[in-house]
Design a protein around this nucleic acid. Structure first.
Lengths: 300, 300
DNA sequence: GACAATCATAGTTTATTCCTATGGAACTGG
DNA sequence: CCAGTTCCATAGGAATAAACTATGATTGTC
């Protein structure tokens, strides 16, 4: 059975005439006759009574008529739905690492909802290796993570450089100093994130680069836990500057290091092969905008 | 868009693999690739992310997937419905002339319902010319009418010969006679059917053949009206013998003519070209059976 | 780093569909 | 009742489309 055959069948049953049906279908009459005959043969039923002047659908024909109409309607409807871009490509899935998600996404998604109200963004918060896998398997449209990313199949676009800062309890001796050097940290206990976090690796690398051997007190899975422990004086830590929140004011002090400026690069990650939907394009444009804004702020 | 393309699309989305989808579809992999690409081009959307090891449907793809499933389901369903003969060709429309319908059809339909319980017979009671037209236009599967029928496009099969009898009121002088001749009818008033009835023409011809000039009193549209008028002594008439009913017993007397035996031939009428459905065939077999039965009764 | 697997492209062959021409049957109008 | 017209089916050839084989480029795997 072919869709064209259904269209021919419909044309005949509506005109009651093979010749006019052929004209309407823009094919020669014998071609249409052949296709109808073929269809009848396949279905095992005569579809038309060929009476002298007109063709009348048989009972089987009238049953099949409804079917054919429905099928062609479905086809048309499907074509229309995909042709209508507005309803499509409006749902994307974005991955983000845990040290980024709670601090960057709320602002980003609010802006997104305002700018592209029809765009539905699903978030997948997970560690970088998982995000990379999901990206490669096509489960994510794009992901936000910290460098480094070495996979050749992943397209990396650096968005912004995020400063990391020392965080201590408000009543900690270091909280009073305006500038802190490595020497000041020698006897401090550090609270770091679990090893699965890319930020933990980042911080470890930073220490290594500066030949500093920290004393590790605790390892937590979440930044908020780290901050809570720091607040009660269990130790100090290094966190992204953007992790600072309003509620921290009375409990925590954020101090910059004098000797070195720890940072991490936040990048947009995409699959090289993956087709970028319109929605993904829009989200990316938003990300670039936010990145430019952050760059401008950093200048000031 | 072609149905095969939808099948290929489904195969790919279910296997996540062009090569295996091609195997499953019994075509070469490049052929399948081409068809998918063609489909994507026509729809204006990429349907799959071609990632390294597997193909994952895009958002447009997942929308189209449901559509494709539905379309193919409809196609399959339609094929199945037509393939299943039992539900089909179970409805026929049978025409019958008014002087036949009320006396023959009840018996016929009762038998039919008993013999072919799934056969639905629709009746169209009308005058012969109308039945012929409807037969030619394909609205009727077959028709029962009295001869003559001269149209070359109509296939005529004589079923039985129906005697016509004189009918008079029970208290009419003729009711006592066992045999009636033309002379006896000279002063009688006849109640005949309207001229549109073929029986009226039949009776008129019968009179003409016997050089008898009847006195016409009334013309009615229905046999039952004729009988009612005859019962109150308004005149006498000639009706089919089978028009006799139980309720007539006390009111009417049916008398045969001695000089001539008026009859009419009841025939099964079909369109020469029209395809005969299974249901029609069954009804025809029933008619032949009844005809044979009537012939046997006539012998006795 | 070699090998296997995957999808796309190129060129060719096969199938199918469409076309023109024509025949036969039937309807129409004088 | 007959000529002209209309209509559908058949036949054979041309055009289109879909299939195949071979091959290349890329990616994943051992």
């Amino acid at each position: 059975m072919e869709l064209d055959q259904l269209r021919y069948f419909l044309a005949v049953s509506e005109t009651g005439n093979f010749t006019r049906a052929a004209e309407r279908s823009h094919i020669a009459q014998p071609s249409l006759s052949q296709q109808i005959i073929k269809l009848e043969k396949e279905l095992g039923h005569k579809l038309f009574h060929r009476l002298g002047r007109k063709a009348v659908v048989t009972e089987a024909g009238s049953v099949f008529l409804e079917r054919a109409r429905r099928i062609l309607f479905e086809v048309e409807d499907a074509t229309k739905e995909l042709g209508d871009n507005s309803s499509l490509e409006r749902r994307i899935t974005v991955g983000a690492i845990p040290t980024l998600a709670p601090y960057q996404l709320p602002r980003l998604l609010t802006l997104c909802r305002k700018r592209f109200p029809n765009l539905q963004v699903n978030i997948r918060e997970d560690f970088k290796p998982t995000l990379l896998t999901e990206l490669l398997e096509g489960e994510l449209d794009l992901a936000l993570a910290a460098l480094p990313v070495s996979d050749p199949r992943i397209q990396v676009e650096i968005l912004w450089r995020e400063p990391l800062t020392l965080v201590v309890a408000k009543d900690h001796p270091l909280a009073l100093k305006s500038r802190v050097s490595w020497a000041d940290l020698a006897n401090e206990t550090f609270i770091l994130l679990s090893s699965s976090s890319s930020l933990a690796a980042q911080v470890r690398r930073f220490f290594g680069d500066n030949h500093f051997e920290p004393r590790i007190g605790s390892r937590c899975a979440q930044v908020s836990t780290v901050k809570a422990l720091v607040a009660i004086g269990a130790g100090i830590s290094i966190v992204p500057r953007d992790a600072r929140s309003e509620e921290d004011q009375g409990l925590l002090a954020y101090i910059s290091l004098s000797d070195a400026k720890p940072t991490r690069d936040i990048a947009l990650l995409r699959h090289m092969q993956r087709y970028q939907s319109r929605g993904a394009e829009q989200f990316i444009s938003l990300l670039r905008e936010v990145a430019a804004q952050k760059a401008a702020e950093a200048q000031v």
